[in-house]
Design a protein around this nucleic acid. Structure first.
Lengths: 136, 136
DNA sequence: CAGTATCCTTTATGATACTG
DNA sequence: CAGTATCATAAAGGATACTG
């Protein structure tokens, strides 16, 4: 827990005290990285299924190319979100599992997943209304 | 609250029951849209400052182009996250404020913001360690 | 002021072929 | 199996100029 954390986002506080812009920029960068589509999906799959091999992880992620899967897990490994274990056998066997940091991120994202699921229909309805108003 | 929500993401459940793939796809799409960099920043700015005019919103968002700001707020309006009010005066005065749905999304994202702020240093350290290991 | 329209560059992603 | 390397393309984003 950092000293700056308490400020964060609250409801109608409407205060004009800006955050430390350096921290703000870093937070934005980290969120941008971490809120990437495939990162979220890999996070979800590993949360649900535990340790997985490369190919299986790709299958469960659904529709991801080999290139993007490699890229995504590398970034996540670099950020400390998962651990990549290479078993020295042939053919190679590489397994991926979340770190505690990865699990804590999944937990943090849980609220967004729940929100998205809970509000799907409301969003779709809003889109239809908006499109209809624009067309009409 | 939908019936499917309860399943969501939990800790090591390791169950293999897949979610309704149609719902899963929609949730992924909504999250992908909503977890966009500028959407999150606009959400944060409007949460902190309340109703804002176009130009002021852009200033507070920091580094966003007019094009992206227009695009972002239009999408958010379409999704029902904010309300755009055009005052029929000249020069034009257009104000943006979050809807309840928008506030609820900001609240859901709050966990991620807190997480990012709390774990910034850990992530940076992990990246340095990873890069050093790769180089050495 | 609050956009729209256009052009142009960068980035992201996919498909394919190859390797330890 | 688990990648890497390369090429090609699409999508995102920025800069600029213009308008009600």
């Amino acid at each position: 827990m950092t000293a700056t954390q308490a400020r964060s986002v609250t409801h109608p506080a409407y205060d004009d005290q800006p955050v430390d812009p350096k921290v703000e920029a870093l937070v934005t960068e980290v969120i941008g990285r971490v809120a990437d589509k495939w990162t979220m999906i890999v996070l979800e799959v590993l949360t649900e299924h535990g340790e997985l091999r490369f190919t299986r992880l790709g299958q469960l992620a659904g529709g991801i190319s080999q290139k993007m899967l490699t890229q995504t897990v590398r970034q996540m490994e670099r950020d400390g979100l998962l651990i990549r274990t290479v078993h020295p056998v042939v053919p190679p066997r590489v397994e991926y599992k979340l770190t505690d940091l990865g699990f804590s991120l999944a937990e943090a994202f849980c609220g967004v997943w729940v929100w998205a699921e809970a509000n799907l229909e409301r969003i779709e309805a809003s889109r239809h209304a908006f499109d209809a108003a624009k067309a009409g």
